[in-house]
Computed example of a mutant assay.
Amino acid sequence: MTLTLTPAERAARDLAALDDTEFGARLLASSPVHEGRDHALLRAWAAAAADFGRSLPPAPPLAARVVERDGGLALGMLARYRSRPATVELYTDAIAAAEDLVDRLGWRALYPESSVRAAALAHEAAHEQLHHGAGKAGLKRALGHVVLSLGGRRVYGHVAGADEIAAHARAAREAGLGRSPLLLAEALAATAAPPPGPATEQPRDRRGRRRK
């Protein structure tokens, strides 16, 4: 059966024409600290972060407790890590919506059945690797963002968002995905966003102020 896609779904499907490095660069560009930075530099950092994430060794089992709940669509996320106590929240409504979107867009070859949940868990496990031990320092070296150089010594700086790209790349490898979860995340955001226009705006008074 051929599905009839909405305009938003057709636009989301067209996102697959972009490469995963572009989605990584977009993620970096969304951070205010990268405002004004050359897009080519952001793409280079995104590619380096993804390569580092794919090179990470198999992650140990998650130390955090896993809890399933609703509310992810409203938050715009599939999962969230909370440190106190160490808990991974899996948002079942967002995961189900992502799986449904994969079917509607014909992306099942890219995101196998039930892989969204597996990728979300692998993503959080990758963050544990990146936040402790050699993973954090290794990512900085891989990015090559030198903030201080004294003699033969270099100090590498933090690149905001690079750990997210690395974790997504690690999750894609772990869950057997054909594309980065960043593509699916952007497609899900594009189809879940409310339509623009006056209907989405609050009423205004005669002076143009929003009415409370």
Score class of each variant (00 low, 15 high):
residue 189 A to F: 12
residue 189 A to P: 10
residue 126 A to Q: 12
residue 88 V to S: 04
residue 92 T to D: 05
residue 61 P to H: 02
residue 3 L to T: 14
residue 17 A to R: 13
residue 135 G to Q: 07
residue 121 L to G: 01
residue 181 P to H: 01
residue 178 G to A: 09
residue 119 A to D: 09
residue 101 L to Y: 04
residue 109 A to K: 13
residue 86 A to M: 09
residue 91 Y to P: 06
residue 194 P to Q: 02
residue 47 A to Q: 11
residue 26 R to D: 05
residue 55 S to F: 07
residue 18 L to S: 12
residue 31 S to W: 13
residue 195 P to H: 00
residue 168 H to W: 11
residue 151 G to W: 07
residue 161 G to C: 04
residue 197 G to Q: 10
residue 82 R to M: 11
residue 184 L to I: 09
residue 107 W to K: 06
residue 147 V to C: 10
residue 95 I to P: 08
residue 162 A to R: 10
residue 85 P to H: 03
residue 154 R to T: 12
residue 144 G to Y: 01
residue 161 G to L: 05
residue 54 R to P: 12
residue 199 A to R: 05
residue 187 A to K: 02
residue 97 A to G: 10
residue 50 A to C: 11
residue 165 I to N: 05
residue 153 R to I: 15
residue 49 A to F: 10
residue 113 E to F: 02
residue 92 T to F: 01
residue 111 Y to F: 15
residue 186 E to G: 07
residue 205 D to F: 00
residue 61 P to L: 00
residue 116 V to G: 06
residue 141 R to W: 09
residue 211 R to I: 15
residue 122 A to N: 04
residue 163 D to A: 15
residue 137 A to G: 01
residue 165 I to W: 08
residue 106 G to Q: 11
residue 206 R to I: 13
residue 56 L to N: 11
residue 3 L to R: 14
residue 46 A to Q: 08
residue 64 A to F: 03
residue 50 A to P: 12
residue 101 L to T: 05
residue 62 L to F: 06
residue 5 L to E: 06
residue 165 I to E: 08
residue 79 A to H: 04
residue 104 R to I: 01
residue 58 P to I: 03
residue 200 T to M: 14
residue 10 R to V: 03
residue 164 E to T: 05
residue 182 L to K: 00
residue 74 A to D: 14
residue 128 E to I: 00
residue 125 A to V: 11
residue 6 T to V: 09
residue 112 P to N: 05
residue 86 A to F: 02
residue 83 S to R: 13
residue 163 D to C: 00
residue 188 L to T: 07
residue 129 Q to K: 03
residue 198 P to S: 10
residue 41 L to C: 13
residue 159 V to Q: 04
residue 187 A to I: 04
residue 3 L to E: 10
residue 7 P to M: 06
residue 100 D to L: 09
residue 142 A to P: 08
residue 165 I to Q: 06
residue 112 P to S: 00
residue 69 R to A: 13
residue 23 F to G: 01
residue 151 G to L: 06
residue 104 R to E: 00
residue 69 R to P: 08
residue 45 W to C: 01
residue 162 A to Q: 10
residue 176 G to D: 10
residue 196 P to T: 08
residue 143 L to A: 07
residue 137 A to T: 10
residue 129 Q to A: 06
residue 20 D to L: 03
residue 70 D to Q: 12
residue 139 L to S: 09
residue 155 V to G: 08
residue 85 P to Y: 07
residue 158 H to L: 06
residue 105 L to F: 05
residue 42 L to I: 11
residue 54 R to I: 09
residue 63 A to G: 15
residue 198 P to A: 12
residue 102 V to P: 10
residue 33 V to C: 11
residue 86 A to Q: 15
residue 75 L to T: 02
residue 110 L to V: 00
residue 27 L to Q: 13
residue 72 G to H: 01
residue 4 T to Q: 14
residue 128 E to G: 03
residue 193 A to G: 00
residue 76 G to H: 01
residue 67 V to S: 04
residue 92 T to Q: 11
residue 55 S to T: 07
residue 51 D to E: 15
residue 167 A to V: 10
residue 198 P to D: 09
